[in-house]
């Protein structure tokens, strides 16, 4: 559902189709026509109107009822089919608590007994999700990124609110008391979020929760000081760059598992002394990457839902 560009008729794809259909002369004629075409107007400051949808003919009553019956029949059939498949699958699962189930094998004991010396992380959960099972967490971060991309595509493309600076609805201007307190609180909250992210391997926390705290700090900043001040350091470009680089760093660190299998390579970054902040190999850096992605996503989704742009 992306918006069409203004020069879509003369874009490379349309030119190629035109050449395919009509030959070289047609392409030359199209290029000359595109040079003569008027330049797209500069966008004005006032918000443009919503693009008009093409008018549709109303359906007749009988046809509408028939379409509705077909729609209901297909929906019921689809739901019954999916339910049947799921029930059949659930029926053939092994019984709960059986001795040969994959949940009860020797892997969990190995994680608990040797987790500390193999990963170096005092927080065994962080050691598991970012070292033993780092590949799964890469998938989760990708899901987060994909969700943010989908929301941005759908909501930012509505056009007439792009770059919006006005407050949605008729909200009151920000309170001076809130601003004075936020001048003290927003840096503290961001600092606390960084503390939770960086201490992920030493105490409960890590990338996901610390990123959420930092996102909450940014939301408070946007509410207290207004969107213009926040846009001085967090624009859509920042969102794009930070998400891209953080996720690429994570992917490049752990994607070799595609080729070497589940055990991965022996890491040349040593595990270090457990309990120090620069221990546990790659885990602090991966936590940082995940935390940045989560922070940008939280604030970006908030901005897009509230005013149509980050």
């Amino acid at each position: 559902m992306a918006r069409l560009r203004d020069d879509w008729e003369h874009s490379p794809w349309r030119n190629f189709l035109r050449w395919l259909r009509e030959g070289d002369d047609a392409l030359d004629r199209a290029m000359i026509a595109s040079l003569d075409a008027p330049a797209p107007e500069l966008r004005e400051e006032t918000a443009p109107e919503a693009p008009a949808l093409p008018a549709e003919e109303p359906l007749s009553e009988k046809r509408r009822r028939r379409l509705r019956a077909i729609y209901i029949a297909l929906s019921v059939l689809l739901c019954v089919g999916i339910i049947g498949v799921l029930v059949r699958t659930a029926g053939s699962l092994p019984s709960f608590g059986g001795a040969e189930n994959p949940a009860n094998n020797e892997v969990s004991r190995r994680y608990i007994e040797q987790g500390l010396q193999e990963t170096g992380a005092v927080n065994l959960v962080a050691g598991m999700i970012l070292d033993y099972r780092a590949f799964d967490t890469l998938g989760e971060s990708n899901v987060l990124f994909a969700a943010a991309c989908a929301v941005m595509l759908l909501l930012r493309a509505l056009g007439w609110r792009e770059g919006g600076t006005e407050l949605p609805g008729h909200e009151p201007h920000s309170d001076i008391i809130l601003q004075k307190i936020s001048m003290v609180l927003v840096p503290l909250i961001l600092l606390y979020g960084m503390y939770v992210i960086l201490n992920g391997h030493l105490s409960p926390g890590g990338g996901f929760s610390g990123g959420a705290v930092m996102g909450a700090g940014l939301i408070l900043c946007a509410n207290a000081f207004g969107i213009e001040v926040t846009r001085r350091f967090f624009t859509f470009r920042t969102f794009q760059l930070v998400s891209l680089f953080a996720l690429s760093f994570y992917a490049l660190s752990k994607a070799y598992s595609f080729f070497t299998g589940a055990n991965g390579l022996h890491s040349f970054i040593t595990a270090g002394t457990p309990g120090r902040i620069f221990s546990a190999g790659l885990i602090p850096y991966l936590n940082l990457a995940v935390g940045l992605v989560v922070c940008c996503t939280m604030y970006g989704l908030y901005g897009v839902f509230r005013r149509g742009d980050v």
Partner: peptide, 20 residues
């Protein structure tokens, strides 16, 4: 300390909400 900083602001905002 954090709660003492933020609680008066919250009460102020709720009071403004009620009056509006």
């Amino acid at each position: 300390g954090f709660l003492w900083l933020t609680s008066p602001v919250a009460s102020h905002l709720i009071g403004r909400l009620e009056v509006t």
